[in-house]
Simulated assay, not measured.
Amino acid sequence: MAYHTDYKTDEEKLSEEIRLKNLSNVYIIYGNDTYLKEYYCDKLVSLSYSGDPFFNFQKFGYDAVIQDVYDAVNQFPMMSDSKCVLLDDYDVFSCSQEDFERLCRLVGEVEDGCVFIIKFDYIDFDRKKNSRVTKLSKAVEKANGKIYNITHRTKQQLTKMLIKSAKNRGVELFETEAAYLTERVGDDLSVLKNELEKLCLYRKTGKITKEDIENVCITDMNASVFDYVGCIVEGNVSKALKLLDKMFFMKTDEYSVFYQICSVYHDMYRALAAKRAGKQKKDIASDFSYPSNTVFRIDRANRYINRFDFSKIEKSYDCLIKTDKILKSYGANAREILEQTTVELAAILLGD
């Protein structure tokens, strides 16, 4: 896998490529910051093709037929000199060996005039000691492609961004209050931007205070989502829906809520697998590179896994993958979809 060793982060490198319009033919975009992945992927797409997007931009999802992707990549641009193909969240771990091998070959056959982007959201690409991750990464590197791990920004970067954004809205936000905002809300950029918007509308002019943040902003969504999943595990659908409604009422981005729910299910799957293998919390934290400030997630996951077996976890993943596909479709009502998903996830645990 491509690991970058100089002082620049992967986000900074990708941002510079985009600014200079110095694009590669192949990209893998993955990481834990959903908002930034989507932001930079949109930037790449917009720079990668010209002319009519109907002909020169094709997007494929997790259930893509690799032959269709192959055909799209090898098709000449229509009335233009450039085109883009996006493969979004394709499950490289469960696809057939034939399809996987063909994908590896395809990244080495992308011609000038086409940019092929492979982006991972729900699919956890950042896995240790996985042969498919290694092989696909080597194929991309051999083709002089780029692999970027887009992670949450540091507290210092977030603080600087929040202060600048508030100033652009005519409101003062000082470093102490900006740091407190990140502590209270978390480091998910989409959530932070939403909460800052609410603060600026609330304050209108002058200085944002700690009291303003406490009165207006939600607490870290991770805590709310863990409580929500806990209600599902307990079979308390009514309370789970109320917690979901509360997150919507606080103007939390529906997609951020969904991806946090998926993250909790990742934690539970890992905890269940570790339990079967006789592993401890420290082993999970080490094997899956949990930062020290997120190890508490494993403790919470361990509280829930007694209601699960691998069959129920698999059915839950199928439900979440289906939800992800629907959410990405045009005109989807995210709130209604997540409410339906809540009921389906609870029903899985109630089944035999």
Rank of each mutant, 00 (worst) to 15 (best):
Y3S: 12
D6S: 11
Y7A: 12
E11K: 13
L14R: 04
E16A: 15
I18Q: 08
V26K: 01
Y27G: 10
T34I: 11
Y35R: 00
L36M: 14
Y40E: 06
Y40T: 02
L47Y: 01
L47K: 05
L47W: 05
L47S: 11
Y49G: 08
F54P: 03
A64E: 06
I66S: 09
V69F: 03
D71G: 05
A72P: 04
N74A: 01
Q75P: 04
Q75R: 12
M78E: 10
D81W: 05
K83W: 01
C84T: 07
V85G: 09
E101N: 14
R105T: 00
I117F: 13
D121M: 11
Y122F: 10
Y122E: 05
F125A: 06
F125K: 03
N130L: 05
R132I: 01
V133P: 02
K135H: 07
K138I: 02
A139G: 09
K142W: 03
G145K: 03
N149S: 15
M161N: 03
K167D: 09
E183F: 07
N194T: 08
K198G: 07
L199P: 07
L201Y: 07
R203F: 02
R203D: 05
T205S: 14
T205M: 06
I213H: 00
E214Y: 04
I218S: 15
T219S: 15
T219R: 14
F226E: 12
V233W: 08
E234I: 00
G235S: 07
N236F: 06
N236W: 06
V237M: 00
L243Q: 05
F248N: 05
Y255H: 14
S256W: 03
S256C: 09
D267S: 08
M268Q: 10
R270G: 01
A271I: 02
A273D: 08
G278Q: 10
Q280E: 14
Q280C: 07
K282P: 03
D283H: 00
S286E: 15
N293A: 11
N293F: 14
T294N: 12
F296A: 08
R297M: 02
A301S: 14
F308G: 07
K322E: 11
T323I: 13
T323N: 12
I326E: 10
S329A: 12
G331Q: 05
A332P: 06
L345N: 00
L350V: 02
